[in-house]
Design a protein around this nucleic acid. Sequence first.
DNA 1: GCCAACGTTGGC
DNA 2: GCCAACGTTGGC
Length: 156
Amino acid sequence: MRHWLMKSEPDVFSIDDLAKVDIEPWSGVRNYQARNFMRDDMREGDGVLFYHSSCAQPGVVGIARVASAAYPDPTQFDRRSEYFDAKARRETPRWMLVDLRFERKLAGPIGLTELRAQPRLSDFALLQRGNRLSILPVTRQQWDVILGMESPRRGH
DNA sequence: GCCAACGTTGGC
DNA sequence: GCCAACGTTGGC
């Protein structure tokens, strides 16, 4: 099983939104590298760190699972969608997506500054200079380190 | 194929 | 709102 980090702007779609719908098709990715991760490398059941970006408190806020194989992003064919792509053809879809399933929120968010302060995450793609990718691979070790930073639940 | 211009991302 | 970094576009 592989692990991933996926960014979302909470003003647009937050971890609470994912909790409400339970399963969400991850439409709108229009970056080839991110698409390739979904199309070529993701498998149902892969673990996903759900990350809030472009907000007051950027950081990992929850865990999701990849809940489907990759399939064509329907918004690329929808003229009314902001993600419409006039060059996409149904026979040769350009953009692929996977479904995400909510697993749980973290006991507390793990902020970007906390992640940066963890020496064992110095190689983490999220923390590299100039990184803008919305989908990033996470190693098993990084996954364990990050979840080990989760603040303990009250009463345990 | 080069590269300048432009648009987007995302932290601060 | 600013700005660095990066991807994409399009003229040549």
